[in-house]
Structure formats: structure tokens, C-alpha cells
């Protein structure tokens, strides 16, 4: 793993106004709270958490599909947040996104050829027959039949559509890809194929990937490092083996326990944590996880732990693992 980060995010914040209206104050949802992390060149970082924890919002902030409220996003050393129209257009050639729902992510009225050729035309990267050649190459690369180009999205299965979505993200030859739950909408049998495809592409093209998922098992196969998110905050970040063998944060332990283990003998006792994800509109005071945490201390409901380094190469936001005040 190279030490050079392709992406360095610092203190990223996103708040949404919810409800409100005429003479009525909108309440705010703090979707992403002070997120800081890096993605090393040619590596893949998994971003896991329950539905609604803000992981998709965070992912979309990186591409400025959602405008962040604060923080910096350094992509190859340049701050994406400070970019205006033309610079943003150029950087968008180099960072792309694969969406969760393969049924919503393709324009139903455009053929595969049109969908894949449009980015090349808009960025002036190819002309004439070269466009068709590059589209054909992209179609072959994601493992679709050669006659796919003239067909419409509805003629394909979910897994095939996801391949089209991946081809669209790759056609501009990006350096970094945000994969926003790319397999959660697919059948389990198809998931493995699409994951293998993504892995192969990552190796062949030397891509860096931010892999958003709610499924720790999926992340285990495709990621080098994992960041665990809870109610808008990153609570633990560590290399994949550490997360699975020795999760530190009680929430990571809970996620780990919820993820099936192939070998029954290797299963070890972890606290089972129940309860629902609290509303992001009124997050609990202190550490947001304390109402569900088996190891909660009085301090946890008053103060919020910060994400601090533990050992080498991992960070955790929990008073169990931080020095006493």
C-alpha cells in the first residue's frame, strides 16, 4: 500500500434542513459530522454503517453531488470544495461514482451506446468511430455481450445494468471511484460476480475506491481498510484484518457480530447489541452510541469521544480506548 493519499478528507460537515416552511423553523439533520479520513493511492477504503448513518451523503459530498457545509476534500492535492465550474468538470473526469440502484441509475430512454458515448463527447475525449471503439472496449471490459450497445437498459437484468453503470463510470478513465452500495440491490448470486469485476478493474487500472456498504461481509472481500460510521460520525477506522479479528469500538463489535462467520469454530463471543438507530434529527447527547452501548459509562452521555489513534494505523472514537482525561 502506497503512503500517498489520493484523497484526503478533513473535517467534512453536512447538515440538511428538514421540514420547516412559512414562519416555521426547519429542524436540522447533521448528516455528516467532522469526517476525516484518507484513501491511499491504489487502495480501497470501505465505509460501513447502518442505513441512514450518513455514509451515502458523505460519499456524494466527495464528488460534490451534495454540497458539503464545511471541511476540505483534497483530491490529488487539490481542494475539490474550492473548485468552480471548469475545474470541477476536469476533476470529475478523474473521480466517478457507481450507484446502488441499477434501475434508477440509467436513463431508460438512452441506449447503452448513447449512455457510454455521452461522457466522451462532452469531455471531447474521442470523436467519430473512436467513440464506438471505446464504448465497445468498455462493454467488453465489464463483461457484457458485444451486441449490448444498441439495446436499452430495460432489456438487461439488474446485474447487467450494474455492469453498464460501472462501464459508464470507467469510460472517462478515472483514478478514483466511489462505489455507493454497488451490490446491495443485486441478488446474492450476482453480487459476487459484480464484486469480482470491480476488484479486477481496480487491479488492472490501478484505481482507488471508496466502497460504501452496510454489509461488513462484502467489505471484507474488497477493501484494504474500513471506516465505520454511526450517526454521521466515523467511530473507528482500521485495516480490514483488525476490524474483523479485533474490533475496538462497541458499535464495530456489534456490526461484526451481526455479520455471519463462515467457520462456526472461529466464532467468538461478542456483545449482542439491540435497539434501533436513534433519529438523526435528535441524536443522543455525548457519544451518540451510548444508549445502545453495553459498555456505556456515565461520561459517555456527557462527552463525545474524538477519533484518536490507537496502536499503529488505526483510530477509534471511544472512551474505552482513549486515555483518561
Amino acid at each position: 500500500m502506497s503512503a500517498h493519499p489520493i484523497l484526503a478528507v478533513e473535517g467534512l460537515e453536512k447538515r440538511f434542513a428538514v421540514g420547516g416552511g412559512f414562519l416555521r423553523r426547519a429542524s436540522q439533520v447533521h448528516a455528516v459530522v467532522g469526517a476525516s479520513f484518507t484513501v491511499a493511492e491504489r487502495s480501497s477504503l470501505g465505509l460501513v454503517g447502518e442505513s441512514g448513518c450518513g455514509k451515502s451523503t458523505l460519499a456524494r459530498c466527495l464528488l460534490r453531488l451534495v454540497e458539503p457545509d464545511a471541511g476540505s476534500i483534497l483530491f490529488e492535492g487539490e481542494d475539490v470544495r474550492r473548485m468552480d465550474g471548469p475545474a470541477l468538470r476536469v476533476v470529475r473526469r478523474r473521480m466517478q461514482i457507481v450507484f446502488q440502484d441499477p434501475y434508477a441509475s440509467l436513463n431508460p430512454r438512452r441506449t447503452v451506446l448513447q449512455t457510454l458515448a455521452e461522457p466522451l463527447r462532452v469531455h471531447g475525449l474521442a470523436r467519430g468511430t473512436e467513440i464506438e471503439e471505446r464504448v465497445a472496449a468498455a462493454i467488453a471490459e465489464v463483461g457484457l455481450p458485444a451486441d449490448s450497445a444498441r439495446r436499452f437498459p430495460h432489456e438487461f437484468s439488474g446485474g447487467q445494468r450494474q455492469r453498464i453503470g460501472i462501464a459508464r463510470a470507467l469510460v472517462l478513465a478515472p483514478r478514483f471511484i466511489v462505489a455507493d452500495e454497488p451490490v446491495s440491490a443485486l441478488d446474492v448470486s450476482v453480487q459476487a460476480q459484480v464484486l469480482q469485476l470491480l476488484e479486477g478493474l481496480r487491479e488492472r487500472h490501478g484505481l482507488s475506491v471508496l466502497f460504501v456498504s452496510h454489509d461488513l461481509g462484502v467489505v471484507r472481500h474488497v477493501c484494504d481498510r474500513v471506516a465505520v460510521m454511526y450517526l454521521g460520525r466515523i467511530v473507528e477506522e482500521a485495516p480490514v484484518p483488525e476490524i474483523f479479528d479485533d474490533p475496538l469500538h462497541p458499535y464495530t463489535q456489534m456490526l461484526r457480530a451481526a455479520s455471519p462467520v463462515p467457520d462456526p469454530k472461529s466464532r467468538f463471543a461478542l456483545p449482542r447489541v439491540v435497539g434501533e438507530l436513534p433519529s438523526a434529527m435528535e441524536p443522543p447527547a455525548g457519544c451518540a452510541f451510548h444508549p445502545r452501548c453495553p459498555a456505556a459509562m456515565p461520561r459517555c452521555s456527557r462527552e463525545c469521544p474524538t477519533l484518536s489513534p490507537v496502536g499503529t494505523g488505526r483510530r477509534v472514537a471511544c472512551f474505552l480506548h482513549s486515555p483518561a482525561p
Binding site: L63, L88, R92, R93, M95, I97, F99, S105, P119, V122
Partner: peptide, 14 residues
């Protein structure tokens, strides 16, 4: 707000 329009935005379409 559909994904294919978001995708277009991410691809740098006007």
C-alpha cells in the same frame, strides 16, 4: 434527484 441525472452531474454534464 434520480441517480441517472446525478450520474450525469458526476460526469460533468451541464
Amino acid at each position: 434527484s434520480r441517480d441517472f441525472v446525478e450520474a450525469g452531474r458526476a460526469l460533468g454534464f451541464s
